[in-house]
């Protein structure tokens, strides 16, 4: 079997805890950037840049928690509000544990996911 630490899908929903022990939220998404090692036929691989982390909300459940969400204004307002609250945790700062993820950032200094 493919080891669980090599599956992107298993990162989703994991709790992320800051360096000071405070809860930052749960993994909502995994940000990829096409600047990894060269893969023949594909080009630069999709490298995991970091995790989009936020609190649970109705907008998150409906997948609306994006800065550029479009649609009827109540939904887009709800989505933008959730996006403003989301944090971006760089991969270099995290450590994976069995039940959660820790980061060397504190909740106060972790950057916003959608500045």
């Amino acid at each position: 079997m493919v080891p669980t630490d090599r599956r992107v899908g298993l990162l989703f929903g994991q709790r992320v805890v800051g360096a000071d022990g405070t809860d930052i939220g749960h993994v909502h998404d995994v940000r990829l950037r096409a600047d990894g090692p060269f893969i023949p036929g594909f080009g630069p691989a999709l490298r995991i840049e970091g995790l989009v982390v936020g609190e649970g909300s109705l907008a998150t459940r409906f997948g609306l928690d994006r800065a550029d969400v479009a649609g009827p204004w109540p939904l887009s307002a709800l989505g933008r509000r959730a996006a403003r609250r989301a944090h971006f945790v760089p991969w270099e700062t995290i450590e994976r544990h069995e039940t959660h993820i820790t980061t060397t950032h504190t909740r106060a200094d972790v950057p916003k996911a959608y500045p």
Partner: peptide
């Protein structure tokens, strides 16, 4: 190379 956005979110 494949046509891929420079940045995307997996989910």
């Amino acid at each position: 190379n494949a046509e891929v956005p420079p940045m995307l979110e997996a989910g």
